[in-house]
Amino acid sequence: MFIDEIRLLLEAANVAEGGVNFFTGPLAAIPKGNGPYLLVRETGGLGPDKTHNQINPPAYTRPQAQVMATGMNPGSVRRMIHDAFSAIVGVANQRVGGVTRSVTLTRSGSTVTGTCEDPHGWATGYSITISGASQTEYNDDFVITVTGDYTFTFSVSGTPVTPATGTITAAYAGTWYRSIDAIQDPFSLGLDSNGNTRFAFNIRADKEFS
Score class of each variant (00 low, 15 high):
residue 61 T to M: 13
residue 188 S to D: 05
residue 39 L to S: 03
residue 111 T to I: 13
residue 69 A to D: 03
residue 103 V to M: 11
residue 6 I to P: 04
residue 59 A to W: 09
residue 7 R to I: 06
residue 63 P to T: 07
residue 202 N to V: 03
residue 73 N to K: 08
residue 141 D to H: 11
residue 72 M to Y: 12
residue 134 S to R: 09
residue 149 D to I: 14
residue 44 G to W: 01
residue 136 T to V: 02
residue 193 S to W: 09
residue 36 P to I: 04
residue 80 M to L: 14
residue 161 V to F: 10
residue 66 Q to V: 05
residue 30 I to Y: 01
residue 4 D to N: 14
residue 142 F to C: 09
residue 53 N to P: 02
residue 210 S to E: 12
residue 183 I to R: 06
residue 110 S to P: 01
residue 168 I to V: 05
residue 158 G to D: 05
residue 19 G to Q: 10
residue 132 G to F: 01
residue 209 F to I: 13
residue 181 D to P: 05
residue 73 N to D: 11
residue 54 Q to G: 06
residue 154 F to T: 06
residue 102 S to Q: 13
residue 70 T to H: 07
residue 29 A to I: 06
residue 196 N to T: 11
residue 37 Y to I: 01
residue 159 T to A: 15
residue 201 F to V: 00
residue 207 K to R: 15
residue 98 G to I: 12
residue 83 D to V: 09
residue 109 G to K: 01
residue 64 Q to G: 06
residue 108 S to D: 12
residue 5 E to C: 13
residue 43 T to Y: 04
residue 176 W to M: 10
residue 171 A to E: 11
residue 165 T to K: 07
residue 12 A to P: 00
residue 202 N to F: 01
residue 90 G to Q: 05
residue 112 V to S: 05
residue 81 I to Q: 06
residue 58 P to K: 14
residue 50 K to W: 11
residue 155 S to F: 08
residue 158 G to V: 02
residue 199 F to R: 15
residue 98 G to P: 15
residue 76 S to H: 10
residue 46 L to Q: 11
residue 121 G to T: 04
residue 87 A to V: 03
residue 76 S to I: 02
residue 39 L to K: 03
residue 125 G to K: 03
residue 101 R to K: 13
